[in-house]
Computed example of a mutant assay.
Amino acid sequence: MAVQGTVAAGFEGVREEFAGFLAEEENAPGAQLVVYRGGERVVDLWSEGVGAESLVGVFSSTKGAAYLVAALLVQDGLLELDRTVASYWPEFAAEGKGGVTLRELLAHRAGVIGLDAGFTPEELADDRAIAARLAGQRPFWQPGRFFGYHALVIGALVGEVVFRATGRTLRAWYEERVRAPYGLDLWLGLPESEEPRVLSTLPMLPTPAQAAEMEAGAWSPYSMGGIAFNEHAPGHVELYEFPNSRAVRAGGQASAGGIGSARGLAGMYAAAAFGLAGEKPLLEADTAAEFARVHSEGRDLVGGMASTLGLGFQSYGHRFPSLGAGAFGHSGAAGSLGLADPRQGFAYGYTRRRCAYPGGAAPENERLLRSVVRALR
Rank of each mutant, 00 (worst) to 15 (best):
A165W: 07
G136D: 12
R168P: 05
L184G: 06
T120F: 00
R145E: 15
R138Y: 01
D127I: 02
A172H: 13
Q142W: 05
L188C: 10
H150Y: 10
F119E: 02
E175G: 10
Q137D: 07
Q137S: 14
T166Y: 06
G136R: 14
G144A: 08
I154L: 14
E176Q: 13
F146G: 09
A135L: 05
P181D: 04
E123K: 08
L188P: 09
R133K: 13
Y182I: 03
R168N: 07
G148M: 11
Y174N: 05
A125I: 05
F147D: 08
P181W: 04
A165K: 05
Q137V: 11
V158F: 01
P143H: 07
F146A: 15
D127Q: 04
G136N: 13
P181M: 10
P121T: 12
A132C: 06
G183N: 08
F146L: 15
F146N: 13
L134K: 07
V178T: 05
D127Y: 03
Y149R: 07
E122P: 00
G144D: 10
A132N: 06
G183S: 10
L152Q: 14
A125T: 04
L186E: 00
T120L: 00
A135I: 02
V158N: 00
W187M: 00
T169P: 02
E176F: 03
L152W: 08
A131S: 10
T169N: 01
R168I: 08
P181K: 07
G189H: 12
E175Q: 13
Q137M: 12
A129I: 01
G189Q: 12
G148Y: 10
P143N: 09
A132I: 02
G148P: 11
W187A: 09
P121A: 11
L184K: 01
R171I: 14
F140A: 12
F147E: 10
G155H: 03
I154K: 00
E176V: 04
A156T: 07
I130P: 01
A172L: 10
W141L: 09
G189C: 14
V178I: 15
I130N: 04
G167Y: 01
R164L: 11
R133I: 00
A125K: 03
E122L: 09
G136Y: 09
L152A: 13
A151K: 01
A131F: 07
R164I: 13
E122I: 02
R171N: 15
L124E: 09
E123P: 02
E160T: 05
Q137F: 09
L186G: 00
W141N: 08
F163Q: 14
A135M: 07
A180K: 14
F140R: 14
G183Q: 08
E123R: 06
L186A: 03
L184V: 04
A132V: 06
E123Q: 15
R177L: 15
A156H: 02
P143M: 06
D127E: 07
A156M: 07
A172E: 15
A131I: 10
F146D: 15
P139K: 13
R164D: 11
W141H: 09
W187S: 05
T166L: 07
A180W: 06
V162A: 13
A131Y: 03
D127V: 04
L186T: 01
R177A: 11
R128E: 15
E122R: 14
T169A: 11
F140H: 14
T166V: 08
Y174E: 05
